[in-house]
Amino acid sequence: MAQTVLHQAATRDKSDHGWLKSFHTFSFGMHYNPERINFGALRVLNDDWVSGGKGFGEHPHDNMEIISIPLEGALQHEDSMENVAVIEAGEIQVMSAGTGIYHKEFNKDKDQPVQFLQIWLFPNQRNVTPRYQQLRYDNLMKANQFTQILSPNKDDDGVWIYQDAWFNLGKFDKATKVDYQFKNKANGLYVFVLKGDAKVEGQDLTERDGFGIWDTESVTIEAALDSQVLLMEVPMNF
């Protein structure tokens, strides 16, 4: 029988630094909840808003897969691998931190906030050579279908990471139903509603709700309103 966990948007911890407003689905920084450490290999899901011209100064990471998905606006990125890039809404960025990297990121626009998802996954290999990848996916998306934007395979659609994980993103008209088949039946699926309302296996979800499901091989997602939904299939044991 499928097992599930519901994380409603209002139950997330919040950090407000003035220039940064961040909602944490899982424990992060000063915010610790022993019941909300991770969902399988999914360790961090932060919903960040950064004021115009502000950002994160240089800081280190190691042995983590770090994914950024801008939803509105653009992020300026610089790192110790000598990458300098702008990541815009409709793009996805991944860094395999491996043996260690430094990077900084800030809102490229001086006047408008940038909104983005910051996602961390535990890797399936430690101390790899750090790497960077960035990809535009919005030109690949089709209405009322999920589009794969991340996988463990270099030759698949989307960016790739050192973990047996698959991300899919979709925009759906009201009353659309879509079935998702797990790539690996030992994995779990974390559903995050970006916009609108959706129902997953009978569970009603509203904007920014998260819902994890495992011990099953497929799920049905129904858009209760015009909706945008992110699916993150990740190993539950790693």
Rank of each mutant, 00 (worst) to 15 (best):
F192W: 12
S80C: 11
G98P: 01
G196A: 03
E58W: 06
K195C: 13
M236G: 08
D157E: 12
W160Y: 15
N184Y: 11
E105K: 07
D16T: 05
M30V: 15
D138K: 08
K21S: 06
V94N: 07
N184S: 04
S227Y: 06
R136A: 15
A2F: 13
L194R: 11
L189W: 10
H103M: 02
N46P: 01
E78Q: 09
N168E: 15
P60L: 02
E201W: 04
S51H: 07
R136L: 10
F172L: 03
P113W: 03
T220E: 14
H59F: 02
N83V: 08
Q125D: 07
K104F: 01
W120P: 11
E88A: 07
L169A: 03
V200C: 05
T176M: 05
E58V: 14
Q76G: 07
M81E: 07
I101K: 04
R12C: 09
E105W: 05
D48M: 00
G170L: 00
G90E: 04
S227M: 08
L20M: 10
A186S: 12
P235M: 12
F238Y: 15
K108P: 00
K104S: 07
Y190E: 04
G202W: 05
G202M: 04
T25I: 01
W214D: 13
M64N: 00
G202R: 14
H31G: 00
Q125L: 06
D179P: 13
P34G: 14
K108W: 00
K183H: 15
L150R: 04
A41F: 08
E233M: 03
Q115Y: 12
L121G: 03
H31Y: 13
W19Y: 06
K110S: 11
P113V: 05
S15Y: 05
K154F: 09
W120K: 02
A2L: 14
K183D: 14
N33C: 06
P60S: 08
V5E: 13
M30N: 15
T25K: 00
D164T: 15
T99F: 08
D13Q: 12
F167A: 04
K195I: 13
V234N: 02
L71A: 05
K110E: 03
K171R: 15
A10R: 09
Y162R: 14
E217S: 12
P123S: 00
R136D: 14
A74R: 11
Q133E: 15
P235Q: 09
L225E: 10
V128Q: 03
P113Q: 09
A9W: 09
I161H: 03
D197R: 14
Q163K: 04
W49R: 08
M64A: 00
A41H: 05
D173W: 00
Y102S: 11
M95P: 10
N127Y: 14
E72Y: 01
V193N: 04
S15L: 09
A143M: 04
I69Q: 02
Q8A: 09
A97G: 05
P130Q: 08
I149Q: 01
I221F: 06
V44S: 00
